[in-house]
Simulated scan of single mutants.
Amino acid sequence: MFDVINLKNELQKQRSKWISEENVLEYYKTLFNNIDAENATTLNQLNSKSTVADNTFDFDKLDTNAIFHITDIRKICIDYRLRFLDTVYFKDNYPSEAISKIQALEKTHCTTLGGFKIVAPMEVFKLKKADDPLLFVPMGNGFYYLIHKWGNDISPFRKLKYWSIKNIENLAISLAIISIIFTAISYPFFFTKPASFGYLLMLFMFYFKGAVGMVFIFCGSSGKNFSEYSWQSQYDKIS
C-alpha cells in the first residue's frame, strides 16, 4: 500500500533543492579549500611574532569568565612555575578546537586577533609536550581574554614541588627547614651528652651553610632562576 522510504534518496532530493548533483563536488572542494586557507591564516597568526598590543572586542558578546588580569596570570605562573609567552615560542601543535574558537571569535567581533599568548610549563616551549596550555589574546590595560584550554591538567603537587624556588624567601625557608631536620637527626652522633642551644645552633649553621653552598653550585651550573623572575622569560636559564 505504501512504498518504503529510501532515506538516501530523500537526502539527495533535499540536497537538490539548493544545489545540483553536478555541482556538489565542486562546491565541497571550494568549501574545504576555503577552510584550509582560513586555518592556514590562523596558524600563521599564532606562529608569527606579533606587534599587536591589544584587540578590539564587542564587550556585550564577551564571556566575563574568560577575562583575566595580568596580575592573576602572574600569580598562577609563579605558583606553578609556568611561563607566559608569545605563541611564536610554542613548539606543540594546536588542537582544531583552538583554531575554530579563534575564527569564531574573529567573526563574532568582526576583527582579526593578534598578540596571542600561551600559559604553559617551560617544557612545552622546547618540546612537543602538551600540558595544560592556556591560549590568551590581549584586551588592553593589562587584561587578557582566554580563548581555549587543552592538554593534560596540571598535578596539584606541582605547586608544592616548586614552592621552594618560587622566590628567594621561600628558598631560605626551605633550606632552614632542611637544616633543622638534619640537625635533629644527627646531633646524637656528635654529642654524647644533651647538647646546649649554642652547640645545636652551631650544628644547624654548619648544615645551613652547606645547603646554601650546594644551591649556589647547582644554580650556577644549571642557570635556573626563581619563578617570580622567569615567568615571562623565553629562556630556560638566566640571561
Results as ranks from 00 to 15, higher is better:
residue 90 F to A: 10
residue 77 C to V: 10
residue 208 F to R: 11
residue 235 Y to G: 01
residue 148 H to E: 13
residue 22 E to N: 12
residue 186 S to N: 14
residue 225 N to S: 15
residue 199 Y to M: 12
residue 8 K to M: 02
residue 206 F to A: 11
residue 188 P to A: 08
residue 70 I to F: 01
residue 14 Q to C: 08
residue 204 F to R: 03
residue 29 K to R: 10
residue 239 S to G: 07
residue 3 D to H: 05
residue 212 V to T: 07
residue 229 Y to W: 05
residue 43 L to T: 10
residue 19 I to L: 15
residue 33 N to T: 15
residue 115 G to K: 04
residue 92 D to W: 08
residue 218 F to K: 09
residue 201 L to Y: 11
residue 178 I to T: 08
residue 153 D to C: 04
residue 155 S to H: 04
residue 27 Y to W: 13
residue 150 W to Y: 14
residue 229 Y to N: 11
residue 146 L to E: 03
residue 160 L to M: 03
residue 77 C to K: 02
residue 39 N to I: 15
residue 168 I to Y: 03
residue 80 Y to R: 11
residue 119 V to F: 03
residue 99 I to G: 01
residue 81 R to K: 13
residue 65 N to M: 06
residue 52 V to W: 00
residue 66 A to D: 01
residue 192 T to Y: 07
residue 190 F to V: 15
residue 74 R to C: 10
residue 119 V to C: 11
residue 194 P to K: 06
residue 117 K to W: 01
residue 173 I to V: 14
residue 51 T to F: 13
residue 30 T to A: 15
residue 121 P to C: 04
residue 231 W to Q: 06
residue 97 E to W: 01
residue 76 I to W: 01
residue 238 I to G: 06
residue 141 N to M: 06
residue 114 G to W: 06
residue 165 I to F: 05
residue 162 Y to G: 06
residue 142 G to S: 02
residue 138 P to D: 02
residue 87 T to C: 01
residue 107 K to H: 08
residue 86 D to E: 12
residue 214 M to A: 15
residue 86 D to W: 04
residue 92 D to L: 05
residue 182 F to I: 11
residue 50 S to L: 09
residue 70 I to K: 01
residue 60 D to W: 09
residue 53 A to K: 11
residue 39 N to C: 08
residue 135 L to Y: 04
residue 134 L to T: 08
residue 21 E to F: 08
residue 24 V to T: 10
residue 23 N to P: 00
residue 115 G to A: 10
residue 169 E to R: 09
residue 106 E to A: 12
residue 231 W to T: 11
residue 217 I to V: 15
residue 189 F to A: 14
residue 78 I to C: 12
residue 124 V to K: 00
residue 20 S to Q: 05
residue 72 D to V: 13
residue 194 P to L: 09
residue 58 D to E: 13
residue 163 W to C: 01
residue 211 A to L: 13
residue 142 G to K: 00
residue 41 T to W: 09
residue 175 L to A: 04
residue 59 F to K: 12
residue 44 N to P: 00
residue 236 D to F: 07
residue 121 P to K: 04
residue 182 F to Q: 11
residue 232 Q to I: 14
residue 181 I to A: 03
residue 208 F to W: 08
residue 115 G to M: 09
residue 89 Y to M: 08
residue 149 K to A: 14
residue 120 A to P: 00
residue 125 F to A: 10
residue 11 L to V: 13
residue 169 E to I: 15
residue 91 K to N: 12
residue 37 A to C: 02
residue 12 Q to E: 13
residue 153 D to P: 02
residue 206 F to Q: 03
residue 176 A to H: 04
residue 13 K to Y: 04
residue 16 S to C: 07
residue 237 K to Y: 11
residue 122 M to R: 02
residue 208 F to Q: 07
residue 163 W to P: 00
residue 135 L to A: 07
residue 44 N to S: 15
residue 57 F to W: 07
residue 148 H to L: 00
residue 150 W to R: 00
residue 160 L to E: 04
residue 128 K to R: 14
residue 88 V to L: 12
residue 96 S to N: 06
residue 174 S to G: 01
residue 10 E to M: 13
residue 32 F to W: 13
residue 121 P to R: 03
residue 200 L to T: 13
residue 7 L to E: 05
residue 134 L to Q: 09
residue 98 A to I: 12
residue 206 F to R: 03
residue 184 A to M: 10
residue 19 I to K: 06
residue 211 A to I: 08
residue 191 F to G: 03
residue 24 V to R: 12
residue 43 L to Q: 09
residue 72 D to M: 06
residue 83 R to W: 05
residue 147 I to D: 01
residue 74 R to M: 14
residue 54 D to F: 12
residue 233 S to C: 12
residue 203 L to D: 04
